[in-house]
């Protein structure tokens, strides 16, 4: 398989993730779309690892997963905290801070 295929597949997933963050109002879904972006990166990283025959990139993917896990725990905690207060996860109601 040419590396381009993976490059474009990964870019497509990445951009779908970006579209998702732009289209949805539910904070959890937006967060999921960001996870999708991270996975697109992981896929590309593994493809490059294969291309170079280098294990470094796969270890890097590990670390991305580590960080993603840490972020998820904090992020979901923040979303739950918000939900407790306003009983919604709609990001449109987050507009006390503006101007």
């Amino acid at each position: 398989m040419p590396i381009q295929y993976y490059l474009f597949l990964s870019m497509a997933l990445f951009c779908i993730g970006i579209m998702g963050t732009l289209m949805r109002r539910n904070a959890i879904i937006i967060f999921m779309c960001i996870e999708l972006m991270l996975n697109a990166v992981n896929l590309l990283m593994v493809a490059f690892s294969k291309m170079y025959g280098d294990a470094q990139a796969q270890v890097f993917v590990f670390f991305i997963m580590v960080v993603a896990a840490a972020e998820v725990s904090v992020g979901l905690a923040i979303i739950v905290m918000m939900y407790r207060k306003v009983h919604s996860v709609d990001i449109n109601i987050l507009n006390r801070l503006k101007h």
Binding site: T21, L22, A27, I30, I91, N92, N95
Partner: peptide
Amino acid sequence: RLMQSGQVGSYIFVMV
């Protein structure tokens, strides 16, 4: 206005 009051959404929109 719906787009703009989306706040986070519109911010990311500007970023993109």
